[in-house]
Design a protein around this nucleic acid. Structure first.
Lengths: 73, 73
DNA sequence: TAATTATTTATCGTTTAACGATAAATAATT
DNA sequence: AATTATTTATCGTTAAACGATAAATAATTA
């Protein structure tokens, strides 16, 4: 799980609640909550696009790749 | 279609062919070609993660949001 | 601290579409 | 011309988003 979701960060930055984002994006608050808490393993571009549009941000603000650290032997 | 894929750009930058990327990422060259040419409408994080790992890049290097321009009336 | 609101979790069902496999077509290279 | 690389096309399988609903938890406010 090296792709992590940073939706919470952008939402906090924009001071936007989950319910408001849900209404404006057109995705249920349940599913947005899953996105927000990293409980999804894929994303449709239609959803990503709507989120970026409403939050005025880029995919890179929401999706982050964190390399698995190689544990020292 | 405001989310556009920039995999081709990163691959060119890294001078990596589709077949090599396919082998190293573990996704068929057919499906990687679809990704590369923007013929998919979603992506699994497992795939995105593998691509970012092999190409040593971030999701933001591959996914870009381009706002639909509001045509002047 | 009770009431209200917001967020998260849990099921279930539907539907979308990634992804693999294969074959074939096209493009690029040698 | 031959080889290699990439793209396109079908088909089938499977993963999982997403909706709907209900319930649980968390946070806020009166």
């Amino acid at each position: 799980m090296a792709i992590i979701l940073r939706l919470d960060r952008v939402m906090a930055d924009r001071k936007m609640s989950l319910n408001e984002l849900s209404e404006r994006v057109g995705v249920s608050n349940v599913n947005l909550s899953k996105l927000k808490t990293g409980k999804v393993s894929a994303i449709r571009f239609s959803t990503l696009e709507a989120i970026c549009s409403v939050l005025n941000c880029q995919p890179g603000d929401i999706l982050e790749y964190v390399p698995e650290n190689i544990p020292p032997q």
